[in-house]
């Protein structure tokens, strides 16, 4: 990671036509995978996104915070594509902590990003993630809302969500799929209070 960035910074000098004229090229410049990740699109070459994923897979626990910070930066970068944000959420699902909850919260209420945001949030233990999920309940509808309710059920950690889920269950204006999700989530909250999310 660090090496490729150093190469990236050196690139304009080392590979510019003027600098290279009459000289032997000393190394092959490689783009920063973190910058390339921001440009990710469906169907395009995703070699560099894959490189970032390998960094996450190979990270030691003491490296998680630094990696998470870089992933959050990708999420918050207005130049990052939606595909890049989705991919980043998948990586936060592996190493994310409460530190990324603020960056994920706006995505949670975006109908197109709510599932990637839940991929990241569902395994993050703690009140901050609970609150973010609970707060998004009133801002979603239909399948997205049912999915969010499902996450509350699977986490089974936020007992304060139970009254909200009960009111959804009894709200005849809600579609059947949402009410069914509330039924299942309530059952999980009531019969399985043990937290299943995994702390890092």
């Amino acid at each position: 990671m660090a090496d490729s960035e150093k190469q990236s910074k050196a690139q304009p000098t080392a590979s510019s036509p003027k600098a290279d004229a009459g000289r032997v090229k000393v190394f092959n410049w490689t783009p920063s995978p973190w910058e390339e990740l921001r440009k990710l699109e469906y169907g395009a070459d995703h070699t560099f996104a894959n490189t970032v994923q390998k960094l996450v897979f190979a990270a030691e626990p003491e490296e998680f915070a630094a990696l998470e910070k870089r992933l959050i930066a990708v999420l918050k970068d207005s130049k990052s594509t939606r595909t890049a944000q989705e991919f980043t959420c998948r990586l936060l699902a592996l190493i994310g902590s409460e530190a990324c909850v603020d960056a994920l919260s706006p995505l949670l209420v975006d109908e197109k990003m709510t599932h990637p945001a839940r991929l990241a949030l569902q395994p993050i233990l703690g009140e901050k993630a609970d609150t973010a999920l609970r707060s998004a309940l009133s801002k979603l509808k239909g399948n997205a809302k049912a999915g969010l309710i499902g996450t509350l059920g699977v986490r089974a950690s936020d007992r304060t969500a139970a009254p909200l889920l009960a009111s959804i269950l009894n709200d005849t204006a809600e579609p059947a799929i949402v009410r069914e999700a509330a039924t299942l989530a309530l059952a999980r909250l009531q019969i399985n209070p043990n937290v299943e999310a995994h702390t890092l």
């Binding site: 499902g150 699977v154 999700a181």
Partner: peptide, 14 residues
């Protein structure tokens, strides 16, 4: 964490 993942709505393991 790789034992499971959040599902796209309306689906879930609840």
């Amino acid at each position: 964490r790789m034992k499971s993942h959040a599902m796209r709505g309306p689906w879930s393991l609840a």
